Simulated scan of single mutants.
Amino acid sequence: MSYRSFPSRLALFAVLSTAAGCTHLPPPRIADAQNAPVPQPIRSADATTAEVQLDVLTFNIEGLGWPARRGRGASLAQIGETLARLRREGRAPDVVLIQEMFSAAAVRAVQAMGYPNMIVGPSRTQRKRMAGTPAMAGPFRWKKGETGMHLVGSGLAILSRYPIVAHDAEPFGKHRCAGLDCLSNKGMVHARITIPGVPQPIDLFDTHLNSQGASRVPAKRNGEAHRLQVGQLAHFIDASAQAGAPAILGGDFNMRGSTERFDRFRSTSRNFTLVHQYCEANRALCDVRMSWDGDAPWLDTEDLQLFHDGALVAVRPVRVEAMFDGADGLPQLSDHDGFRVTYRLRWTPDAAKRPATG
């Protein structure tokens, strides 16, 4: 979350307080599983394995309202209309992980995408439930947003063409943020989906971690908030994930250019594989359709995805590409490009005979 060119802090608080009261999050949208699309598995020539693909987009839609942003309504509406059109044409991602769905226009855009299953992250007033998570130390920079009062929700949502059979959300909580990021009730959201024919459900996680310079507080302070949030994210995943299930984690991790933040995050997420690192090391197995510069392209972006295998289902990225980056007829409509990953889910036919749980 970042704020640029805003008026006085008191005016900012007054306007955002009013805006927060006008932004109502939609209730969960859960479609009847009996009407879920059924993908056709591809079987190997020797019939020892079967596989389907799962296409996941993570996208920070820059859905802040005035005065943090001006004139975002048209671009947000176009994002929603574009994904709705791609869905009608059968070319949309199967899953979308959204960040910065703060304004009423952003909520309308996400709803307009038309996915049959949708859950949203922590609301403005949701309180944390996880115990034992430390808080930031004072003195608090109330003039920089550290008032202990959240003016908007987390801005998170997960949308899926496949049934969502379980979901949960958890905010980082009061005084577990730094600077202007504290104006939103940032946190984490989880959805478990089932894909007909796949022998295990898939756990999906979406998050938005504390920003760096945009937080308007010193690096030591915003870095400490990021550290606390990374620990909470790991705790939330452990508590929410189904034992032995495959999982995909995405979001805006706010680690661009920071080896310190990245190394700290990877030290607590070692059971996940980073898509950028896998595809950089396995170019013959992963179709990279976007420009990656330098030796560590994962440090050139805030937007990442990670994955891990399940007990019965192996997960591997087979294609990565950008969306809404000005190419392929999709104009840039946010200050972030969408990051789209196509995964191959592979299992043995014997595993497919076992009932999926969820």
Rank of each mutant, 00 (worst) to 15 (best):
H336I: 05
L97A: 03
K144Q: 10
A77V: 02
R283W: 03
V198H: 10
R176Y: 06
V15W: 15
L180P: 04
F324I: 03
Q232P: 09
R43E: 09
V56H: 02
S267I: 13
T357E: 08
L228G: 13
S215G: 07
G73K: 12
A281D: 09
P199T: 01
T348A: 08
V15C: 12
C182T: 02
L57P: 01
H175P: 05
G358L: 10
Y343F: 07
Q212T: 13
R319G: 07
A245S: 05
R124F: 08
A68T: 08
A109K: 01
V110E: 00
P39Y: 01
V56F: 05
Y278D: 13
V56P: 05
D309E: 00
I98K: 10
G250S: 00
D206H: 13
K220N: 11
H150N: 13
D295N: 09
A169I: 00
G294C: 06
V189S: 08
L304A: 08
H336D: 04
R221V: 11
G65W: 08
L233C: 04
K144W: 14
S211Q: 10
S154P: 08
V52Y: 06
V275R: 01
L156K: 09
F272L: 15
L64V: 15
H150S: 11
M101I: 06
C279I: 02
W292I: 00
V189I: 07
F253T: 05
D46H: 08
D181Q: 03
G338L: 05
P163Q: 04
L97T: 02
I237Q: 03
A47K: 14
G153P: 06
R316W: 07
A247T: 04
T23K: 08
P199C: 04
I119M: 04
A284Q: 06
A11G: 15
R192E: 06
V288Q: 08
A106R: 11
D238W: 07
E51Q: 13
I79T: 02
P246A: 05
A351P: 07
C182G: 09
G223C: 01
A214W: 11
L151E: 00
H226G: 11
V38G: 15
P28T: 02
F6L: 14
A191I: 00
L299P: 00
Y278L: 12
G244I: 01
G73I: 03
L333V: 07
A33K: 05
Q242K: 15
L25T: 10
E146R: 06
S17E: 10
S103R: 01
V95W: 01
P134W: 06
G187Y: 01
V320M: 11
Q232M: 03
I61M: 12
R91A: 08
G223L: 01
R108E: 15
A105S: 12
L151A: 02
S258M: 03
R129D: 10
P355E: 11
G63Y: 09
D303C: 09
S184Y: 15
Q111A: 14
Q232L: 00
Q111K: 09
D94S: 07
L330D: 03
G73M: 02
G132R: 05
R319V: 03
V107D: 09
H276M: 08
T23H: 11
T23F: 12
T342K: 07
G65Q: 10
A47M: 14
N60E: 04
G173Y: 01
H308T: 12
L76V: 00
I30A: 05
